[in-house]
Nucleic acid binder design. Structure first.
Length: 585
RNA sequence: GGGGUCGUAGUUCAGCUGGUUAGAACGCCGGCCUGUCACGCCGGAGGUCGCGAGUUCGAAUCUCGUCGACCCCGCCA
């Protein structure tokens, strides 16, 4: 149909007769001469429709409108002196049309199809195909394709085999809420869409696949965020006969390959490795953004010696006082300080103590409670310099971390403390194996129930499970978790101990995971793996604010597809066949 | 489940402490135009101010409710 795309003609093509098909991007009608910019995925080419060259083609040019699909035949010609368009890759040439045909007409689009003209979020989703046609989203989808393509090549070269696992699988009721699919052939029973192929990839290890991967869709029925969609894609990896270092180094190679081939950037490997405990202590979070400082300081000891009741009481109750220096914030007004305090309270603090560090000394309503050398100690611990603001949270240790960790990020964003072009990777290791779920009154796995404990901690299952460390690792990029995995349990005994610690009885364990437990008895190799969030990774690579911007057809925050209007009701017959009754009471 | 921002022309938005006929830009329609590329010039159409109730002599504007989009907390092994 076409001889060239709308992005490839150069002065070297001058003289050739070509046929282009594309969308009418812009039309500039001079009455006599008409210019049409023809657009496709590859670019834009200017067509000149001149009555002296072809009367009927020129006639047609008056009839076409924006987004008509136009087929043009004509000669590639050099643009006249002074009319070359530097902004266009094809700007040295234009087509003198001698034949024109409307391949497809178009209604006036609801918004202008132009990369500089951004429609609102609702518009983008409702007319997604037009939003993709507009350009920037198409570019991001191309980048996404490039990433999966690099990943597939890399893993293929390293001996990995992509194996597909079931989308209709078993609900385990652990972790996130499942999307359920009723079974017609087994009325009253349900499949679940996979939250991840976790158990299948472990079975593939038992099967001897040795190195598995899959670029795979996963489903979680939880509330949405800008980085969370109900269906998302994982780069899922599992390997046999490996330890943490083997898995990490394969991943580092893969990430470096992606950055090299997609962004032309060299990434230094191996990545920094930091323990969970250190990350919490220094950054207050388990996914630290290490592009800037503002590290937290434990000033409990100094604070305990003071006469400040808030600090003393918190410590007496077994809590801690943690502090941080906000650079340049000594100039904050009363209102700004109140806002900052309000923000801290929003993050869970009871309040926020602050001390301004100025050239003239310390300024704060609470200086009177401290000896000068104590405040000097605060200054030393936080690294505050004149012009900075020291902020303090006195509370349970966990609250102090959460509040200052969140405040640190919010302040850094406001103060522009990091460079948008920087990419800082860090592995977080030695996660706790369990955490205590106050609501369920039992221990739950921090990672998942198949994560192996650190060997020397195995004796603590019965006594102090909360002290046990997991052989898990998360890859964090600029404060975002882009991947996480672990070395798995590969023996039945440890797996049973694990279930016991999670208060999952033997019967329940057999009912839910019996197939895995049995498999572990047939020579399961030591194995481990990881999964990366493809959507998040591509969002970071393309500078997208939300993963919606790297997904062709995403859902809204209420998990609705406004394009297809899914989910929707179904007719009574469908429900009957499935043995289902609606009850919305 | 909770907190916040937003909802006005096809689109993106402005519209003040309530007050004549609700504006702009782009787009759209008609006319003119042979070197434009954000073409230009002239003219025109286009509004249930998300929806519902209330306050008021009077509501796009204030109040309440509701629906929707987005951001955050909870939730997401």
């Amino acid at each position: 149909m076409r001889t060239h795309t709308c992005g490839e003609l150069r002065s070297s093509h001058i003289g050739q007769t070509v046929t282009l098909v594309g969308w009418v991007h812009k039309r500039r009608d001079h009455g006599g001469l008409v210019f049409v910019d023809l657009r496709d995925r590859y670019g834009v080419t200017q067509v000149a429709l001149n009555p002296q060259i072809d009367e009927s083609a020129h006639e047609l040019a008056h009839k076409v409108r924006a987004e008509f699909v136009l087929k043009i035949r004509g000669k590639v010609s050099a643009r006249p002196e002074g009319t070359v368009n530097q902004k266009l890759a094809t700007g040295e040439v234009e087509i003198y049309a001698d034949e024109a045909e409307i391949a497809s007409a178009s209604k006036t689009p609801p918004f202008v199809i132009d990369e500089d003209d951004t429609p609102g979020e609702a518009m983008k989703l409702k007319h997604r195909y037009l939003e993709i046609r507009r350009g920037p989203l198409m570019k991001r989808l191309e980048t996404r394709h490039k990433v999966s393509s690099v990943v597939r090549n890399y893993l293929d070269e390293h001996g990995f085999v992509e194996v597909e696992t079931p989308m209709l699988t078993k609900s385990t009721h652990e972790g996130a809420r499942d999307y359920l699919v009723p079974s017609r052939t087994n009325p009253g029973s349900f499949f679940a869409l996979p939250q991840s192929p976790q158990l299948f990839k472990q079975l593939l290890m038992v099967a001897g696949m040795d190195r598995y991967y899959q670029v795979v869709r996963c489903f979680r029925d939880e509330d949405l965020r800008s980085d969370r969609q109900p269906e998302f894609t994982q780069i899922d990896i599992e390997m046999s006969f490996v330890d943490e270092n083997n898995v990490r180094s394969i991943c580092e190679g893969m990430i470096a390959d992606i950055f090299d081939k997609v962004k032309g950037m060299k990434i230094n490997t191996p990545f920094t490795v930091m323990t969970f405990a250190e990350s919490m202590r220094r950054y207050g979070v388990d996914r630290p953004d290490t592009r800037f400082g503002m590290e937290l300081a434990d000033v409990s000891e100094l604070a305990g010696q003071s006469d400040f009741k808030v600090f003393k009481d918190a410590i007496k109750k077994g809590g801690a006082v943690r502090a941080m220096a906000a650079p340049g914030c000594a100039a904050y007004s009363r209102k700004e300080l109140d806002d900052l305090t309000g923000e801290a309270i929003g993050f869970g603090a009871k309040g926020l103590a602050w001390i301004k560090v100025t050239d003239e000394g310390f300024v704060s309503p609470i200086t009177k409670f401290f000896k000068p050398e104590t405040i000097d100690g605060f200054k030393q611990a936080t690294g505050a310099k004149p012009g900075d603001l020291m902020v303090f949270v006195a509370d349970k240790e966990r609250i102090g971390f959460e509040v200052l960790g969140a405040l640190r990020l919010s302040l850094a964003k406001r103060l522009n403390l990091f460079d948008g072009s920087e990419y800082n990777f860090v592995w977080i290791v030695d996660f706790p194996l369990f955490e205590y779920d106050e609501e369920a009154k039992r221990h739950v796995a921090l990672h998942h129930p198949f994560t192996a404990p650190v060997e020397e901690d195995k004796g603590l299952f019965e006594t102090e499970p909360l002290k046990m460390r997991a052989r898990a690792y998360d890859l964090v990029l600029n404060g975002m978790e882009i991947g996480g995995g672990s070395i798995r349990i590969h023996d039945r005994q440890t797996q049973s101990a694990m279930f016991k610690a999670l208060s999952i009885g033997p019967d329940e364990a057999m009912e839910k995971f019996g197939f895995l437990l049995e498999a572990l008895e047939y020579g399961a190799p030591p194995h481990g793996g990881i999964a990366f969030g493809l959507d998040r990774l591509v969002a970071i690579l393309t500078g997208a604010e939300s993963i919606r911007e790297v997904i062709a057809f995403p859902k809204t925050q209420k998990a609705v597809c406004v394009l297809t209007d899914a989910p929707s009701g179904v007719d009574a017959k469908q429900l009957r066949e499935l043995g289902l009754k609606r009850d919305l009471s």
